[in-house]
């Protein structure tokens, strides 16, 4: 039983990261009906930028560890958001009125471009975050040994997700995003600046992805230019699992995928872990063709 709970906490920490990245997929999809395959690489850019800023600005020395990390996170999120907006402008906007799959190919091209650009700038070797930025203490949770960092990461993910949810639900621009997701043309007729909505989506999604990249760097320490592909695929799976286009769905899907992976590895097989996760996904889609929280919408393919 103790092992079960230990695996549960393992899964939650991984799932929190998946959820944060999945939000970017789901928001872009909600508004543009585009699978942004370059999103995983925005996540990677976040972790590389975090490393560069961390080692060049000495923020934690100047501002103290807590404030240093917060400032660092804000800078990374801002910069990745800029990259995201640029990506939309260059690679997606010219394709907005063309066949949907054309934009998918453009996204795949952007993904290849980003990861190889990172390789050229930083080199192909694994990059390593300096040690000792985050506290190494662990907390005793009912007999479970949980490193504090994992709790912090899950906490930070949840806080960001709640903030996003409140933003989408309560603010005016959030309402506009939701409106554009339901029907872009109708939203435009109601006086919503759809271009601005799309820009917002491409600022928020990448910012969250960048934050996830920074957290992965800080916690796991080791980053490389290809890691966005794996995380991106998992996060996309999570978004679909929860019902793509649905923001709470991405959160639930991410956390759930992390837990499925951990428990699948623990009780079935480690080597088959990913196959188990995909198997569960396929099963859920057969039973509920729109994902867990997805609404049944008539969609033209």
């Amino acid at each position: 039983m103790e092992e079960f709970f230990q695996q549960l906490t393992n899964g939650l920490a991984v799932g929190g990261i998946y959820a944060l990245i999945a939000l970017g997929y789901t928001m872009v999809y909600g508004v543009l009906k585009l699978i942004n395959f370059a999103h995983g690489d925005l996540f990677t850019i976040g972790s590389y930028l975090g490393l560069t800023l961390l080692t060049s600005l000495f923020l934690s020395d100047r501002l103290g560890p807590g404030a240093g990390i917060v400032v660092l996170a804000l800078m990374v999120m801002g910069l990745v958001a800029l990259v995201g907006a640029l990506l939309e402008r260059v690679a997606y906007r010219p394709l907005r009125h063309s066949p949907r799959l054309s934009a998918v190919v453009s996204a795949l091209g952007a993904s290849i471009f980003f990861s190889n650009t990172l390789m050229l700038i930083y080199g192909a070797r694994f990059q390593v975050y300096p040690q000792g930025i985050l506290p190494k203490t662990a907390i005793d949770l009912f007999g479970l040994y949980v490193p504090l960092v994992r709790v912090l990461i899950l906490g930070a993910s949840v806080v960001m997700m709640i903030a996003l949810y409140a933003f989408i639900q309560k603010t005016k621009i959030g309402t506009a995003i939701r409106a554009a997701a339901i029907d872009q043309d109708a939203a435009r007729l109601m006086g919503i600046d759809v271009n601005r909505v799309i820009l917002m989506v491409f600022l928020i999604g990448p910012a969250l992805g960048g934050a996830a990249g920074l957290m992965v760097g800080l916690h796991y320490g080791q980053i490389n230019f290809t890691m966005g592909w794996v995380y991106g695929l998992k996060a996309f799976t999570a978004a679909i699992l929860g019902g793509i286009g649905n923001i709470p769905g991405a959160m639930v899907g991410g956390i759930l995928l992390g837990v499925i992976e951990a428990l699948g590895a623990a009780y079935l097989s480690i080597a088959w872990k990913d196959a188990i996760a995909f198997g569960v996904l396929i099963f859920i889609l057969i039973v509920r063709p729109t994902g867990l929280l997805g609404e049944r919408v008539a969609e033209k393919v």
Partner: peptide, 22 residues
């Protein structure tokens, strides 16, 4: 050499933009 896949990625985007339908 090492930049070949980067050039290729950029070419993919460019081709899609200039010929949106393929």
């Amino acid at each position: 050499t090492n930049a070949r896949m980067m050039v290729f990625g950029a070419a993919m985007i460019a081709m899609m933009i200039f010929r949106t339908g393929g």
